[in-house]
């Protein structure tokens, strides 16, 4: 039994997944996390460092890491890459001016070796705002089709109303589960 098999077996027993939530600042990462966990969202402050939440969903234990997106924090993102099963990239679909910035950061991130194999879910957030880009448009703008190294999916959502959050997370969990829990 190799080391990876042991790791896999251990995770299988716990049904545990490590999920990293990243994106530019003001994208709504913390709001997504809190909304998903059923907490109040109108008292959220900009994230100074990071938030960790462990939550149960569909029998899985999800370790969610939400790291602040400010420019000065982005260089610390790499400290969180180890053992990541899933990556949630959150986009403010209404902030068109920074979409280019958003695209660049995402593609830099995906080159990271320690994230290889992680499933990527792109949340096109803030769809409750008028003028928000659709997930189809974002797929082009963010050049998602170019991604060949990760399983990916883009899902529109609104963290404020909670719409579509669940279907996004469910896709992510299914994809991760198919990868790490069914192999033996």
């Amino acid at each position: 039994m190799g080391f990876l098999t042991v790791l896999r077996k251990m995770k299988q027993k716990e049904k545990e997944m490590r999920i990293l939530i990243l994106g530019l600042d003001n994208a709504g990462k913390t709001t997504i996390l809190k909304r998903f966990n059923g907490e109040e969202i109108d008292t959220i402050s900009p994230t100074l460092g990071f938030n960790i939440k462990t939550l149960e969903h569909r029998g899985y234990k999800l370790n969610m890491w939400d790291v602040g997106g400010q420019k000065s924090l982005r260089s610390y993102w790499r400290n969180y890459f180890e053992c990541t099963d899933g990556l949630i990239w959150v986009v403010d679909s209404a902030d068109k001016r920074r979409l280019e910035d958003c695209r660049a950061e995402l593609h830099v991130l995906l080159k990271e070796e320690r994230l290889a194999g992680a499933t990527l879910l792109v949340f096109a957030n803030k769809q409750d705002l008028p003028g928000a880009c659709s997930s189809e448009e974002l797929k082009d703008i963010l050049e998602l089709e170019k991604i060949k190294t990760h399983h990916w999916q883009i899902v529109w959502c609104s963290a404020v109303t909670g719409q579509n959050l669940l279907s996004g997370i469910d896709w992510l969990i299914n994809d991760i589960a198919a990868r790490i829990f069914t192999l033996d």
């Binding site: 003001n26 109108d42 008292t43 959220i44 402050s45 900009p46 400010q70």
Partner: peptide
């Protein structure tokens, strides 16, 4: 609810913020 201010200078802000500003 939140204020996020970047790369600015000489700004006077008369602020009401219910969470925090950065």
């Amino acid at each position: 609810q939140q204020l996020r201010l970047h790369s600015s200078s000489d700004v006077h802000i008369y602020l009401h913020v219910t969470s925090r500003a950065i």
